[in-house]
Computed example of a mutant assay.
Amino acid sequence: MSSDAAAPPSAPATEPPKPPERRRRRGRLIISVVVALVLVVGAATAGIGWYFSGVAIEVSHEEEYPLTVLDTAPGSVTLPKDEATALPGTWALAWKDGRAMLGPVVGNSADRVVRKVTAVTQGRLTKGTKVYLDHWIYSGDPKTALGLDFQKVTYPSKLGPMPAWLIPGRTYSSTWVIGVHGRNADKLETMRAIPAVHRLGLPMLSIAYRNDVGAPASPDRKNHLGGTEWNEVASAIAYARSRGATGVVLYGWSMGGAMVMTTLRKTADPTFIRGVALDSPVMDWSATLDKQGADRDLPGFVTDTAKLFLEQRVGIDLDDFDQRRYARDLKTPTLLFTTNGDLTIDNGPSVTFAKTAPPGMVTHIATPGDHTDAWNVDPSAYERALTGFLAKVR
């Protein structure tokens, strides 16, 4: 009789549990969503960055009329109240077919401001008219606006003849002032300075440059933020020298300031530049683009992408536009106007530039107002500072 007991059945081999199909599908879905979000965010960043870079280099000369006249009365106009319309000082009001000169504020409420109208120089000012506040003040040309004789001249440049206004001084054999307007602006921007320069007996050459109305266009018809436009300033200096100038003062507004500073650094004869006057200059385009991006609620990485696109699209290096890097080497006397309420550029680099330059080399005057409004807020004080500076460096 066998005593062998029956062997227990062997246990099956252990295998790792298989994830349920639902879990696998969920994992694939999460990966797909993440990839899609990365692609969407990347595409959105690139798209917004490309658009923002295009805004910075766009050439546009169209007028906008953001204000509506709320009421008129003999000798006054009522406008919506904002920081600009309520500022003291001297301004013009422009509309599609007209212009008026504005005086001081004579009435004020929570949402509207009443200003004196000193003259209606063109058209009719009526309730409901779409207008803009014009800090350039003048229209026309030096003869029609200021009663000053001038010549329409052209100066040679790499792109062809460039138009300019030449307001004679007592003699052409003297220091000339060369006025350089800002981005998408016009020679009219320089008009506020012409009377003070003329009273000193100095010739003033107010220049147009590439992409201006009536001037040759750049090959790509884009703004290069001064990166190529400075060549016209150099050409204007050569023209002034050919007409008898013994030196020049370069006078730049906004982007014109960036052009002036680049010319000062790159000119073959910096000693011929007796002085530099700057009005709300762009002393660092990168900082200004950061400010404009933040004002549009763009994340920093989007603005950084826009700056990369901008550099590639017009072939510039934004680092080269940071004038603070060159402040310690400044050898040319400089008059610098900035406005405390500048909504267009970051004027922090201008302040730093003035503090970093050798002692006594920069005269910095800070005023209330928005971009290039220093003259408008107090014309007399502005012109005293300008004529005092020019008298020293002429």
Rank of each mutant, 00 (worst) to 15 (best):
D141W: 07
K291V: 01
P281C: 02
S76W: 02
A217L: 14
V113T: 00
R328C: 01
I30G: 09
T263H: 14
T267N: 10
L93G: 01
T305C: 07
P163V: 03
T387I: 05
H371Y: 04
A11W: 10
V302M: 08
E64H: 14
L298S: 05
Q151H: 13
R210F: 12
V377F: 03
L200K: 12
R124C: 07
D320I: 12
S32E: 02
V197S: 08
L159S: 06
L264C: 09
D134K: 13
R124A: 08
V38P: 00
P12D: 03
T367R: 07
G227W: 08
W91S: 11
V302G: 06
V177P: 06
V131I: 02
G256R: 05
K127A: 12
V213D: 15
D212L: 04
G315L: 00
P88V: 05
D342S: 03
L289G: 10
M1C: 13
N211P: 12
M191K: 11
S218V: 08
S60R: 09
H198I: 12
R313Q: 15
D212E: 12
L225P: 04
L318V: 02
T72Q: 02
A164M: 00
G227Y: 10
V34S: 05
Y251D: 12
A145G: 14
A5L: 15
R22W: 12
N223S: 14
L148S: 11
E311V: 13
S206T: 13
W95V: 07
G201C: 09
G388H: 07
A236D: 06
K152V: 12
G244N: 05
Y138K: 08
E232N: 15
G123D: 02
R313N: 14
A258H: 06
A277Y: 00
R26N: 04
A196W: 01
V276F: 02
E311T: 12
L200S: 13
Q151A: 13
